[in-house]
Design a protein around this nucleic acid. Structure first.
Lengths: 227, 227
DNA sequence: TTGACTAAATTGAACGATTGACTAATATTT
DNA sequence: AAATATTAGTCAATCGTTCAATTTAGTCAA
């Protein structure tokens, strides 16, 4: 075996660069992150960025492909659970509502778990950066991950509330629901200060899950007023 | 009238620089924004940044002082409404709950209105930037604006839910509530795409307000499970 | 197995451009 | 005249990119 499958020398370097770039880009932002700093963190020569990715912008795209990969992998179990359980949904309105509620909680538990993970720290800022002034990277992320997640979520919200899945009201509700967890990603400085947290540990995550479950139950446990 | 009150020549320059810096910092981030670009947008000489603010960092602080000023001014009516109405709160649990609900909606209506304002576009990213790696600017913002807003909000949530105002559960609920609106600030790219919006206009704001009101009513219109 | 040949990968150095800060001279206002 | 404000220009440092030279890995004939 002369060729070690896909793990050639170049692949190793590319991976090191992507991981380093995720860290440096995430901490400093695209413009402030220097290719020299990225190369140093990766432990490779600076010129290899140009060689392997064409340049700084190319590396940036490479980082997003990595993010997409990780997010799909991380969310896969929860999404799969939803699709399989939804294949044979009960017809009783009450049972359908309860099923949707249970699945929603599963999805958001996963989403909440990721708040504390290190991978999220680097990628969150990069994703946020793309929200205001979307570039090619955002198109990639939205088409390959976000759109699907929003779609699944809206389907569950529709099932739980009785709203029309295609209605704007239902979509807005879904986005708002995400916001309840997203706030702990993006407003970390304010939240940790306000809650007297030292970072976000397992206990904090558990508390968030518990409160979110209570809110979700209260929010969806009755006939929901439409538009 | 030689001296036009406080609007001397230098004040005018400082204001132009702060507004330009808000725009450029907001669009490009601190490091990527060049003092030359800021000076050009402001229509003043680059060296005046050093003269009036001591340097780039000083200008950055100046921008946050401006943001604090604007946010206080913008939120003042809603906050004042809360404090005045709360001065003579009814003793009936049911009445207190309804009052809290009404006041909450007032606060969040104001908060929702600001989503579409141009001022928010520039300041949102600057504030987000400070959330992950807080600097002196964040301390200023949190102490002068955010802490107060969170405090008032938690008080209302406590009144509406019956939770202890000082409990972590109540604080988490409050933060989650903010998240439902905040998501439309920070995830603009995803939300506008998902909702097929072209930016955020008055109609969109109205729809958001309506849905948030419905959610809030559903969420708080009954005895709320504690911890 | 060996040794020559090739393509891929890596290196260090250099390029022109841009950065924030600073200075001395000038202009404006008090 | 004195204080304040503005200007054009210079500075060293750092930026992303490029390039020729070198090393490494894989192929194939002998």
């Amino acid at each position: 075996m002369t060729t070690q499958k896909t793990v050639s020398r170049g692949d190793h370097t590319r991976e090191r660069l992507v991981l380093a770039a995720l860290e440096v880009f995430g901490r400093a932002g695209f413009d402030a992150a220097s290719t020299r700093a990225i190369a140093e963190v990766a432990g490779v020569n600076q010129a290899l960025i140009g060689y392997h990715f064409g340049g700084k912008q190319g590396l940036y795209i490479g980082v997003f492909e990595h993010i997409i990969d990780q997010m799909r992998r991380r969310m896969a179990p929860a999404v799969e659970q939803v699709t399989s359980r939804l294949a044979a949904a009960p017809q009783s309105a009450e049972e359908r509502r309860e099923l949707a509620l249970e699945l929603l909680m599963g999805v958001f538990d996963t989403f909440t778990d990721m708040i504390g993970e290190q991978f999220a720290a680097g990628s969150t800022r990069l994703i946020l950066r793309e929200q205001r002034d979307p570039t090619e990277a955002f198109q990639l992320l939205y088409d390959n991950v976000l759109a699907g997640m929003l779609s699944v979520l809206t389907r569950l919200v529709a099932m739980a509330t009785g709203l029309d899945e295609t209605s704007e009201a239902c979509r807005i509700r879904s986005v708002m629901m995400i916001g309840q967890v997203l706030v702990f990603y993006v407003a970390r400085g304010s939240t940790t200060r306000f809650l007297n947290w030292d970072g976000v540990d397992a206990d904090n995550i558990a508390a968030l899950k518990q409160q979110f479950r209570l809110v979700l139950e209260t929010q969806l446990s009755q006939g929901v007023a439409t538009s």
